[in-house]
């Protein structure tokens, strides 16, 4: 018994210590930092609620957070709409080759994130692929950026980046469905569309929910994609956080903003757990 305990302590202490020092502590430190006057010199030792007042007063921050949540939601939705038929096809129509065909879809997601966004810039810019194509068919009179530097460009580039990550959990969820259930439905005279709505879709929901959050979490915190293809119109909440540290140099304000994002994320995750309980899904099933 004492042996077991000391073994456990030896195993658990190093990773726990690292996570406490470099994950838990930084989060708590960030929370206290948001009460400081400034990041440097004397101001570092002065405490204030000014940043909180400013955050509550400035509705632009709140609107931007709302807009980023909407953009993350939209991106996740598009990914699911595109990935669901794909996963469905692979499971029910592709036969033995399904894993190979799925891998083919996943490979682009393993390439450099920055470079993929750069590629989209090349597609959407004024001398880019889309502009050229539209000119060739006569829809565009002169070289002009198409979509670039807009909210839509950010959503397109993000949907592109995350689509494969959504296909994966939906694929896994559909793979677990017992084909006998569908046969039984057919034998009992259930038309295919109805079998889909009442058997396949409900059973694949855990995969859909998992896919949704695979996209939603990183997208909500995005600042790189909007910085590259978003322009003024496509800016996200993550960009104003980054701005506080790089240009504004108002670190305590940045700490507060990032704290708000953390809280927003935890609330949304709480919602997820509640939703999954309602759907009678074990959290562990999502990872599969």
């Amino acid at each position: 018994m004492r042996d077991t305990r000391s073994r456990l302590l030896i195993l658990i202490t190093p990773p726990a210590l690292l996570l406490i020092m470099f994950f838990v502590l930084p989060m708590l430190n960030m929370a206290t930092f948001s009460f400081r006057q400034g990041a440097f010199g004397e101001e570092r030792h002065m405490w204030t609620l000014a940043h909180y007042r400013e955050f509550l007063r400035n509705t632009a921050f709140q609107r931007l957070l709302g807009r980023s949540i909407a953009m993350a939601f939209e991106t996740s939705l598009y990914c699911i709409i595109l990935a669901y038929p794909l996963a469905y096809f692979l499971i029910f129509r592709a036969g033995e080759r399904r894993v190979a065909l799925l891998t083919l879809v996943l490979v682009p997601a393993w390439t450099s994130f920055l470079l993929r966004i750069l590629a989209w810039k090349l597609i959407l810019s004024s001398e880019g692929l889309l502009s050229g194509l539209l000119q060739a068919v006569g829809l565009l009179a002169e070289p002009k950026p198409v979509l670039l530097y807009s909210r839509a460009a950010v959503v397109v580039a993000l949907t592109y980046s995350w689509l494969p990550f959504v296909a994966l959990p939906i694929f896994a969820a559909l793979e677990r469905i017992d084909p006998h259930l569908l046969e039984a439905a057919a034998d009992l005279g259930c038309p295919p569309w109805r079998a889909f709505l009442r058997v396949t879709l409900p059973l694949s929901l855990p995969g859909v929910v998992a896919g949704f959050f695979f996209v939603f979490i990183p997208t909500l915190g995005e600042w790189v994609t909007p910085a590259l293809v978003g322009g003024v119109d496509g800016i996200m909440y993550g960009n104003i956080i980054q701005d506080q540290f790089v240009r504004g140099l108002n670190w305590p304000m940045g700490a507060l903003m990032s704290l708000v994002m953390l809280l927003a994320m935890l609330v949304l995750l709480g919602l997820l757990v509640w939703l999954l309980k309602a759907l009678h899904v074990e959290l562990g099933d999502l990872i599969g």
């Binding site: 470099f22 994950f23 930084p26 430190n29 915190g221 670190w251 990032s258």
Partner: peptide
């Protein structure tokens, strides 16, 4: 608690983690 904390970095936006560590190192 241990499992929840160790899984947390998966659900925290990277910008938050980056900023929190930056403040820590500066502190």
């Amino acid at each position: 608690v241990f499992m929840a904390v160790s899984a947390m970095p998966l659900v925290i936006p990277y910008v938050v983690l980056g900023v929190a560590l930056l403040i820590l190192f500066s502190t």
